Amino acid sequence: MVERIRRRGLEPAAEAWDFLSLALAAVTVDGIDRRNLSADGWTRQLHLSVAATDPDRWSGVGPEIDRALSFLTTDMWSVSFMPGGCLPPRPRKHASVEADTVALLSGGLDSLIGAIDLAASGSTIFGVSQTVRGDNSRQRLFAKRIGQGLQLIQLNHNASTRRRQKETSQRSRSIVFLAFAVLVASSLDKYKAGETIPIYICENGFIAVNPPLTPARIGSLSTRTAHPNFLYQIQQVLDRVGLRVKITNPYIEKTKGEMMLQCSDQQILEEFASISTSCGRFQRFNYTHCGRCVPCQIRRASFLAWGRLDKTTYHFEDLSIADSDYAMFDDVQAVKIAIEAARTDGLDRWIGNALNSPNIDNVSALRAMLGRGLRELGELHDSLRIP
């Protein structure tokens, strides 16, 4: 990873390297401490000490970091900083990087739409991808074909431990993706000239808020990477340590179906939408969408709302089959329960405390978006005749 950055001639800020060190350490600790060994079988007390180039600067925001990581993983974090952080060698030849925007480009449908819309708006984009087996070539294809072509860097953290038994929930892992974006943003010419660089995390609002579909899916069973409260907390940390970036999710108030309908270039979206990825179990089914996990259901619902043919291959295509592999699979049942709960008990009761945060100032808009997202899922279940 470091060598790839050097080869590109990028020279990130010291604070950006420190943030990456924090992110890598958090992901590693998250994978070491198993939840089933904690007092309640889930919530852990995680203590982390990180070497930084300027530990005093980071120690001043320790409580904010603790709160952000605790919200992200629903554990109790205690992070401290110590001297010893080091900067990688400077590149032999510094590259001039004229992009004005950094965007995460995962190979997924939402980030594809985000990059299309940003390019259409005139932004000069530097795409950042976290390499995942099965998505590498797709990321490069999207970068090449969107707009006049995007600058792209593909990075992989490979943070892991040698322990044979690891914690698989890993709710912190995507913070490294965000750290990669901060690293690149601080390398841009405009950043070095004193400007603030926007970082775009393009995620539909339903997945970003990700309210637990059922009471059994509380806490860490619902990922919070793009949740507006988490992004606010991380933004506060970055501001406090002097990193001039602004994290934005322009689609926080839109469903996935609305993102597809309102995409600024329908032609390129139609060309690439079906080869983008959404599945939470993509590798498990030989790089094929399973068709039944929650992200797959939201994807299928968005194509239905878009009104165009979904050419995606799904391993479990016909969800009307009433067995444990299809309609009775727990994710399918969870969506069904959520739809019925909102219909019978009301949307607010179903949402629960998912939007309860003083850091969220658009609660009414997010509430309405969640209602529309559930309607899209309801129309999918009706169309598939899920029993």
Results as ranks from 00 to 15, higher is better:
1 M>Q: 09
3 E>C: 01
5 I>C: 03
6 R>W: 01
7 R>M: 12
15 E>F: 04
16 A>C: 03
17 W>I: 04
18 D>F: 10
22 L>E: 07
22 L>C: 11
24 L>N: 05
41 G>K: 15
48 L>E: 03
59 S>L: 11
60 G>T: 09
62 G>H: 02
63 P>N: 02
64 E>C: 11
67 R>Q: 15
76 M>A: 15
76 M>F: 14
77 W>L: 02
77 W>Y: 12
79 V>Q: 12
85 G>P: 07
86 C>T: 15
87 L>E: 10
102 V>N: 12
104 L>T: 00
112 L>V: 08
124 T>L: 15
125 I>T: 06
127 G>H: 00
127 G>C: 00
130 Q>K: 03
130 Q>L: 08
133 R>E: 14
139 Q>R: 04
144 K>D: 07
148 Q>H: 12
150 L>F: 01
152 L>G: 06
158 N>C: 08
160 S>R: 13
163 R>P: 00
167 E>D: 13
177 F>T: 04
181 A>F: 08
187 S>Y: 07
191 Y>W: 11
194 G>F: 06
199 I>P: 00
199 I>V: 11
201 I>D: 03
212 P>A: 02
232 Y>G: 06
232 Y>V: 08
237 V>M: 09
240 R>K: 15
244 R>V: 10
251 Y>K: 03
252 I>F: 02
268 I>E: 01
268 I>G: 00
271 E>I: 03
279 C>A: 00
286 N>F: 15
286 N>V: 15
288 T>G: 07
290 C>G: 02
292 R>Q: 10
307 G>W: 04
311 K>W: 09
315 H>A: 13
315 H>I: 13
320 S>W: 10
328 M>A: 10
334 A>V: 04
338 A>N: 06
341 A>Q: 09
343 R>K: 04
344 T>W: 01
350 W>D: 05
353 N>T: 14
355 L>R: 03
359 N>H: 12
362 N>Y: 06
362 N>C: 12
363 V>K: 07
365 A>T: 06
367 R>E: 10
370 L>E: 09
370 L>P: 08
372 R>F: 07
